[in-house]
Write a protein that binds this DNA or RNA. Structure first.
Lengths: 205, 205, 205, 205
DNA sequence: TTATAATCGAGACGGTACGTCTTGTCTTCAG
DNA sequence: CTGAAGACAAGACGTACCGTCTCGATTATAA
């Protein structure tokens, strides 16, 4: 029933302008309990054992309440993650391209450590398996970060500070590629030293 | 490659000194039918709809024959992929570091296009969800490629041809990071131009 | 009869004081479809080829709906049978012991013909193989009939109408023994003539 | 392959007249091990958990060796039982009908106690489920006993010693009916007192 | 002595059903 | 009209046995 209008993780902001529909309002308490339950269960059991039933049970809600507001467990996790990690990555602009880039990368790397890193890995996996979720994942999480870094690197490019032959777009791919490859494949640490190395590689020596 | 690790019995690894065990031998026909079925079904339906039951049915075998030789559908796909893509990536050594690197990268990129690329994405996803498979995936597929590229870049490093501050290890991460990020996140093409750009970025200008 | 024992929640046994629990109620339609499917499939294919999967498929339900309400196929059949044969055997009390006994035996024999007789044979077989079902089979089907006949014969015994040396209990065993032996072993017909002969044997000449 | 000539549990008697075929002879050791394994496993685990695989494993033989000589586990058990219980029931003929009948019934009842009784119950169950086995069961075990008792009762009938209205055939049904009903349904003891009561009921007072 | 034939233990094979689990939907009553 | 509760149809999971087939090895007869 009427799931079309008010659905979507990111829009409790619209609440002020809603035309005040009849009926019981969405329970903010349930919403938070579901997000928290999803996050906790991922930690405790891993994505393979994360189920909608388990989330609902832990949250003390019915399954329908989950399905009414999210398409599936991956989307719950995606919203849980954006809640947890909303503003972890600011966009610095001090004029010092190297310092700005290093700060951004270091903050991004720091945000990709467990348990957030585990959620990211799970979502990237789900994005491969469920193409529709993949699109939402890109729109909600991947692309905003790409654009932030892209903006930063475009400034460097305009100042001719980018390494030769690199465009902002490919530099973004190199940076996030390194991040995700370490996260998904090698599981090696993402520390400030690596951010520094990456900064020097992407910018003109 | 072919399943030598998972069970004692058939063990074609001991080819020199096969102890000639009793009992019916593994059916090579069934093995091939299962690998082919898995590959075809991935193409036709996607990883989300790929099931062990479906593979067995398409291959004309019993489910038990799949489970006897592979832990699950991901491992079937992994072997199918190594069969399909065994020698797609040779290790050139002409003395020209840039040419060698470019050739390796271009060949690697070429091998990551559909349908092989789809299989790679599915396996990387599964590796995140099932940690035990993740280990097998790294051992069987990821690390051998890393070592090949590592060898190539170590040669360049010894000749002081690597870009400043880069070690062979981080250069490998940058290269494969770019590959996998495009494969998993942006789905942008992996062409020779990109291989060239990457070559110039990793090597000393 | 109808499954009141197996799960706490629904418990329609408390019909007077139903606490009105939330949640969807058991589907009476599915229940009937499952019972009918089991009965039909027994006829068509025999007990050896009767499967829970087949019952669910024929009934148009999921397997889980069968397992939620019955321990297995034998219990489905047992309920189907008690539904079909609920009041086939009344307990006559005309004062004429011989007439009463003959009527009871003739009605009992008549109820043991195919297809009901086939179901009885299957259930008696299952009772030997699965002891837990055996207990349910005795409680639900065997003992109620024993008690009915026992009551009838106790009346005859009180009037000194029973054959010498016979107690009501052994007379019951002789009567049902003859019935089941013919059903299970010789497959010879159970007709009114046999009921008459049995009546004369059990009662004082 | 040519299994037709020498198969069948009961015919090692033909060994003298066999045309002396080439090839390895049937292993008497395996045969005995299989029969013993079946009997033991029935005791330990019950008929529901008795499997051909389990019998073969316990006997230290291959499954094929079981299937070569018996149609299935029930036939193994049937032979095991006839080996164990071959001559437990002699046919007395002292001229005293009551004494003869009582002796026969008491011996028959005694042979139906565990563990033999458990095997009998299992076989009677299997006979209901598998009609082909049912025919073999009747021919091998049920009918020979019926004929023995029938012979005994025919003598009594000829001497006009049978209870009025009873024919030898129905008297046999009453006797075995009581035995099997107690075995399958009530599990009450089958003792000499019951044999005595039955004797008096079947014979003219 | 050699060929042929049947058995043996072992174990993989194509199948079928099991009983469980999870998905996403539907239905009930309470707020 | 939402929320918790929970039954529903659907279908894959991984396991257990079925009865058959295929091995090398062994044991017999017949040439």
């Amino acid at each position: 029933m009427t799931e079309q209008a008010n659905r979507g993780p990111a829009d409790p902001a619209d609440e002020t302008s809603t035309p005040v529909r009849p009926g019981r309002r969405r329970s903010e308490e349930s919403r938070r309990a579901i997000l928290a339950a999803a996050y906790e269960l991922l930690d405790e059991a891993g994505y393979a054992r994360l189920t909608v039933e388990g989330i609902a049970a832990r949250a003390g809600t019915g399954k329908q309440t989950v399905y009414r507001w999210w398409p599936g467990k991956a989307d719950v996790l995606l919203e849980a993650l954006t809640v947890h990690a909303r503003r972890h990555v600011p966009l610095p602009d001090t004029g010092d391209h190297a310092a700005d880039l290093h700060a951004f990368l270091a903050a991004t790397f720091a945000a990709a450590t467990p348990p957030t890193g585990d959620a990211l890995r799970a979502l990237m996996a789900e994005a491969q398996i469920d193409p529709a979720f993949g699109a939402r994942f890109r729109d909600t999480l991947l692309n905003p970060r790409r654009e932030a870094l892209g903006t930063l690197l475009a400034r460097a490019h305009a100042a001719d500070a980018l390494a030769p032959q690199l465009t902002p777009a490919t530099a973004v791919d190199l940076a996030f590629g390194l991040l995700w490859y370490r996260l998904l494949a090698t599981r090696e640490p993402l520390d400030d030293r690596l951010a520094a190395l990456l900064t020097r590689t992407l910018l003109r020596a």
